[in-house]
Simulated scan of single mutants.
Amino acid sequence: MKFEDLDARMRVYETAHDHCVLPGLHIVVRLDGKNFTRLTKQTWPFEAPFDPRFRDLMLDTVTHLMECGIGAVYGYAQSDEISLLLRQDDTTFGRKTRKLISVLAGEASAKFSLGLGGLASFDARVCQLPSQASVMDYFRWRHEDAHRNALSAHCYWLLRKRGESAQTASAALLGLSTAGKNELLFQHGINFNDLPSWQKRGVAVFWEDYQIPAVNPKTGEDVTAQRRRLTRDLDLPLGDAYNEYVRAFIS
């Protein structure tokens, strides 16, 4: 059998179930660290509940993903998860979900592992969003999830550091309201509102244009040239202001 015939016959088995995101839909890829909750508690030497070293590893990973040839325009990270917004007209890999998932999960795992100095892995999923409003809702959802998780994490680790077991600390927080959790922290000298915003709201990475002095090679005239660079934001706005913040990156 000729190779070309064998290749054509076998190729269908790996492509028959390829799914491509339809044109016009917005693509967000969300990546989550595999077993990061257990690893940060038991194996990796990070300070709980938040450690700037872990934050910076996540920021480095987001930055790498936005530079690795996929049309990402906005990256958001909170805890052990990353959300990447692609340009609406991006056609990388023909918009095949399996390629986006496998490549981005692999790139994230490799970058984080190199920075950590040990093995770490991410999984990935593709969210197909039909409108600008749904994109803003998606990021608002993850943004507010960050706030809820941060409050619970600070309460949990407050109890653990006061000698409570993992089981007792978890039981103490079960069913406790947001107001109750804030009060628990306040009773021990912690005002949740005063904590660093990156812990409560997550962090962002995005492209921005900037100008540099240049010289017109034809005329020798002094001009300015426009360049692009990635910028990190550790102080994201809240509520509706965050919706408008995200809107600026949606094509």
Score class of each variant (00 low, 15 high):
149 N>D: 06
8 A>W: 15
62 V>P: 02
136 M>G: 02
64 H>C: 11
184 L>Q: 06
221 E>G: 06
46 F>A: 00
77 A>C: 14
67 E>M: 12
245 Y>H: 08
132 Q>Y: 10
154 H>I: 01
113 S>N: 01
67 E>G: 07
135 V>R: 00
5 D>N: 15
120 A>F: 08
250 I>C: 06
28 V>A: 00
143 H>C: 01
19 H>I: 14
19 H>N: 08
155 C>H: 03
151 L>E: 02
142 R>W: 02
217 P>I: 02
156 Y>K: 03
203 V>S: 12
62 V>K: 00
75 G>F: 04
155 C>D: 00
40 T>P: 03
22 L>S: 12
142 R>H: 00
51 D>N: 03
41 K>S: 10
36 F>E: 01
13 Y>R: 15
177 S>R: 12
207 W>D: 01
106 G>T: 09
82 I>E: 01
46 F>Q: 03
31 L>I: 06
94 G>M: 11
113 S>I: 04
233 D>Y: 07
77 A>R: 08
32 D>P: 08
36 F>A: 02
167 Q>D: 13
3 F>N: 15
200 K>T: 00
98 R>I: 12
88 Q>F: 07
178 T>V: 14
200 K>C: 00
157 W>H: 09
180 G>K: 10
124 A>F: 05
133 A>M: 11
16 A>W: 14
158 L>A: 08
243 N>M: 10
91 T>W: 11
210 Y>R: 04
54 F>D: 04
75 G>L: 00
3 F>C: 12
199 Q>T: 03
247 R>V: 02
158 L>H: 13
66 M>F: 04
228 R>P: 02
37 T>Q: 12
231 T>Y: 10
99 K>V: 09
7 D>V: 15
188 H>R: 12
77 A>D: 05
50 F>T: 00
30 R>E: 04
167 Q>T: 11
180 G>L: 05
191 N>H: 13
217 P>Y: 07
28 V>Y: 00
61 T>I: 01
166 A>N: 12
138 Y>N: 08
167 Q>L: 13
101 I>Y: 11
84 L>W: 05
247 R>G: 01
223 V>P: 08
239 G>L: 09
228 R>L: 04
72 A>E: 03
89 D>E: 13
234 L>Q: 12
103 V>Q: 14
46 F>P: 00
6 L>A: 15
178 T>D: 10
11 R>E: 14
49 P>M: 06
50 F>S: 06
46 F>G: 00
201 R>M: 12
35 N>C: 09
13 Y>N: 14
102 S>A: 12
14 E>Y: 15
95 R>Y: 07
237 P>K: 03
151 L>V: 02
170 S>Q: 15
70 I>H: 10
149 N>S: 09
127 C>F: 13
72 A>K: 05
178 T>Y: 11
59 L>M: 14
35 N>S: 14
250 I>R: 07
91 T>R: 11
119 L>K: 13
53 R>W: 04
24 G>C: 08
197 S>A: 12
219 T>M: 03
170 S>T: 15
73 V>R: 06
135 V>H: 01
130 P>F: 07
77 A>P: 07
203 V>E: 05
80 D>S: 05
189 G>C: 10
143 H>R: 06
136 M>W: 06
201 R>Q: 11
125 R>K: 10
235 D>A: 10
37 T>H: 15
229 R>M: 05
42 Q>R: 11
113 S>Y: 05
202 G>T: 01
248 A>S: 13
76 Y>P: 06
200 K>Y: 03
177 S>F: 07
84 L>I: 07
153 A>T: 04
30 R>N: 02
